[in-house]
Amino acid sequence: MKRIALFPGSFDPFTKGHEDIVLRGLRLFDEVVIGIGRNTRKERYFPLEQMIQLIEGAFDDYPAVRVISYDDLTANVAREIGAKFLLRGLRNTTDFEYENGISQVNRYVYEEVETVFLITSPQLAPISSSIIRDLHRYGQQVDEFLPYQLEKVQ
């Protein structure tokens, strides 16, 4: 049986920290599906279609990685795509507290799903999507934090 992991997030934007989790996840799973969920409490900074294209391009050489978008509970999406695992990265204890609660709810919705936490590589731990958005919004170069290049804000 194929071991499929869903790596869910808003990925606004998808960072080198996210890329690191996916690449390390490929050592554990046969396929990693990057799932860009729609968060009703957040308005996207980077357009969804643009982010899908950029992420797909970053993983061109990895046929075991694919990208989807969804507007549903993460656990329901995992069940639909046949994923028995949710892959998550943890930068710190604050991330753990937040992710732990979500993992419990996901198990409630889809009891066969297991959440696998990978600790972020130390050199990537300070990177967050919100910091990248702020830097980009104010015209700062952010390419060193991303596995692709973005156009600068005018």
Rank of each mutant, 00 (worst) to 15 (best):
L135G: 01
A64C: 00
A83H: 07
D95S: 07
I55F: 10
Y138L: 03
P126N: 02
R44Q: 05
R27T: 14
Y108R: 13
L87W: 06
K152L: 13
A78T: 06
F85E: 03
D72L: 14
S10D: 01
F29P: 05
E97A: 15
L90I: 10
I81T: 04
Y148P: 11
E114R: 09
S130Q: 13
I36H: 06
E31I: 03
N76I: 09
P122W: 00
F29E: 05
I52Y: 07
M1Q: 11
L48R: 13
F46R: 03
Q141I: 09
D30C: 12
Q149H: 13
I68C: 01
R107S: 13
G89K: 10
E97S: 15
V105L: 15
T74M: 09
F46E: 09
N92H: 02
L135A: 14
I36E: 08
F85W: 14
Q53S: 15
K152Y: 00
Y108D: 12
R133A: 08
E144P: 00
G82P: 03
A58T: 11
Y70N: 00
R3D: 12
S121K: 15
V153A: 03
S121F: 04
V116M: 12
K152H: 10
E80L: 13
Q149W: 00
D71F: 04
G82E: 10
V105H: 01
D95K: 09
F117G: 11
E111L: 00
R38M: 09
R107P: 02
G89W: 07
V116H: 08
F85A: 11
Y108K: 14
I81V: 15
I4H: 04
A83N: 09
R24A: 10
M51E: 14
F59K: 06
I36W: 07
G9Y: 04
F59T: 03
L6E: 03
L6R: 07
Y148E: 07
D60V: 02
R41H: 12
S10K: 10
V142Q: 03
A5P: 11
N92R: 05
Y98Q: 01
F96T: 01
N92V: 03
I52P: 00
L135Y: 11
R3E: 12
F96L: 15
F11S: 14
Q149V: 12
A64I: 00
Y45L: 01
G35S: 13
G101W: 01
E144H: 14
S103M: 05
P126H: 02
D72T: 09
R133T: 11
R3I: 02
